[in-house]
Amino acid sequence: MFEIIERFHDQLLDNYEFTSVCVEEIFYDDILKELFEEANPISGLRGCNVENGDTANLFNLAALQSPIICYRYRNHFRVVAGVFTLNMIRKGIAQRHVHSDYKVPVFILSKKPIGLVRKHIIQFDLTNMLLTKCFISDTKKISFFLHAWFEKDQGKRSIYQSKEWLSLFPNLDTTEKVSNFLSISKKSL
């Protein structure tokens, strides 16, 4: 299992292109949809309206700071990372700050990764945003998202000892370490 993921990481920088894609041509990957059915972090975001400046340039800057990563699928693209950036740009389109045919800079993987690798990418993107950007501070909500996105291995005490979790966050292998990292109480985590 991990050999496949390691091979993907070893070859990643040789197997992508950077280009602009119309936002309307980007759809969620099937694995991302499944995780969102369990726990959709977009619902936990604060609503705000972008009012100032050249919004298109701000969206381009956001797409470079938190890149969108896709792969080609039939006549469109499927996103595996950069979901929060994509959501922000879609919101900007809905609020008419940019046109519906707006093109956003994206990284396109040269081929569709296998399901295990796609899940790995998606879990890292979502969890990294949750842990480092702290868009949610409620311990119970953080716990809800993490437990929905990661499976607890049989015989392990928590998701923090699962193979999925440890492949992404090997230094955060206990509830206490995760709560200390987030500076929150471990009671509900």
Rank of each mutant, 00 (worst) to 15 (best):
F2H: 10
F2M: 12
E3S: 12
I4R: 10
E6V: 06
E6F: 07
D10N: 15
L12Y: 13
T19R: 14
T19P: 05
I26G: 09
Y28D: 08
Y28L: 11
I31Q: 03
E34Y: 06
L35H: 11
F36N: 04
A39K: 09
N40C: 13
G47Y: 14
N52F: 14
D54I: 15
Q65L: 15
Y73N: 10
Y73V: 01
A81K: 00
A81N: 08
G82Q: 06
V83W: 04
T85M: 01
N87E: 09
K91M: 06
H97Y: 08
D101S: 13
D101K: 10
D101G: 06
D101F: 08
Y102H: 06
P113G: 05
V117S: 00
R118S: 07
R118N: 03
H120L: 00
I121S: 02
I121R: 03
I122M: 05
I122Y: 01
L126E: 00
T127R: 08
F135C: 12
F135Q: 11
F135W: 13
I136S: 05
I142C: 02
I142D: 01
F145W: 08
L146R: 02
L146M: 15
H147M: 10
D153A: 05
G155P: 05
G155R: 07
K156D: 03
S158N: 15
I159G: 08
I159L: 13
P170C: 11
N171P: 00
K177M: 06
N180E: 15
F181R: 08
L182Q: 07
I184R: 02
K187C: 07
S188K: 15
